[in-house]
C-alpha cells in the first residue's frame, strides 16, 4: 500500500514539477479564466441584471471551461514525447496512474478556481458569503468529481483523431449533477444562507464524486491497455 502511494506520489510530483517548469497548461487555463470573466462583463447588460445574482453560475461555467481546456491535455504532452509508453509499462498499476493524474489535475483546477474567484471579486466585486470554509469544501468535493470524470475522458479523447474537440460532448452530459448541485450550493453560500440549505447538495456532490472516482479507477485500465 505504501509502495502504491509512493508510486502515485512520484507521478504527481513529476506532473506538477513539469507544470511548474513549463507552466503550459496553467498559463492557458488562467488566461482563459480571466478572459472569460472579461467577456462576461461585456456579454451581460449590467443595467438589466445584477451580476451577483448570476455569480455562482458564471463562476461554475468558467471553472468548467477553464478546467476542460487544461485537462484535455492531461495525456497530450506524454503522448507527443512518447513518454506514455514508459509510464504505462512502468511497474505502477494503471489505476495508480489514473489516481495520480486525478490528483495533479485536481491541483491545477483548484488553482484556476482561486484565480476565477479572485478575478470575479476584482472585476465585479462579488460577495462570496461568510462561510469560506464551507465554500472551499463544496468546491473541493465538486472539483474532485469533475476531475475524476474529465481525466478518464481525456484519456479517451487523446486516443482519437478528434482529440479535444470530442471532450465536451463526452463529459457535459455526465457533469450535469456537478453543475446543478455545485451551482445551487455555491449560490446559497454566496447568499450566506444557513448550512442546512447547502448540506443536501453537498451530499449529492459527494455521492457523484465517489461514484465517478471509483468507476474511473476501475475503468481507466480498459482505456489505456495495449
Amino acid at each position: 500500500m505504501t509502495v502504491y502511494l509512493r508510486q502515485v506520489a512520484a507521478i504527481v510530483r513529476k506532473d506538477l514539477l513539469l507544470e511548474v517548469r513549463t507552466g503550459e497548461r496553467l498559463a492557458a487555463m488562467g488566461a482563459l479564466t480571466v478572459l472569460v470573466a472579461v467577456l462576461f462583463h461585456f456579454a451581460i447588460d449590467q443595467g438589466l441584471v445584477r451580476m451577483q445574482v448570476l455569480a455562482a453560475g458564471l463562476i461554475w461555467m468558467t471553472i468548467l471551461f477553464g478546467g476542460m481546456l487544461g485537462m484535455g491535455r492531461t495525456f497530450e504532452m506524454e503522448r507527443e514525447q512518447g513518454a506514455i509508453q514508459g509510464l504505462l509499462t512502468s511497474p505502477v498499476p494503471l489505476d495508480g496512474i489514473y489516481l495520480a493524474k486525478v490528483v495533479s489535475n485536481f491541483v491545477l483546477v483548484t488553482l484556476i478556481e482561486v484565480v476565477a474567484l479572485a478575478a470575479y471579486w476584482l472585476f465585479f466585486g462579488f460577495n462570496y458569503g461568510n462561510d469560506l470554509l464551507l465554500l472551499a469544501g463544496v468546491l473541493g468535493v465538486a472539483t474532485l468529481g469533475f476531475v475524476a470524470v474529465t481525466t478518464l475522458f481525456a484519456a479517451i479523447s487523446a486516443q482519437t483523431n478528434m482529440g479535444q474537440t470530442l471532450l465536451p460532448i463526452l463529459i457535459f452530459p455526465l457533469l450535469v449533477p456537478v453543475v446543478i448541485f455545485g451551482v445551487t450550493a455555491t449560490g446559497r453560500i454566496f447568499a450566506s444562507r444557513p448550512v442546512q440549505e447547502v448540506e443536501g447538495s453537498l451530499y449529492l456532490l459527494a455521492a457523484f464524486t465517489v461514484v465517478a472516482l471509483t468507476a474511473g479507477t476501475i475503468l481507466f485500465r480498459y482505456v489505456v491497455e495495449e
Partner: peptide
C-alpha cells in the same frame, strides 16, 4: 459513436466505447 468512429485504433475504440456505456449507466 463519435469515439468509435474517430478512435485511432479500432480495438481501443471498442473498449473506449464500452467504457462510455458503462460509465454512462453508472452516472
Amino acid at each position: 459513436f463519435l469515439v468509435r468512429a474517430s478512435a485511432e485504433d479500432r480495438q481501443a475504440g471498442k473498449r473506449m466505447a464500452a467504457v462510455i456505456g458503462v460509465l454512462g449507466a453508472l452516472l
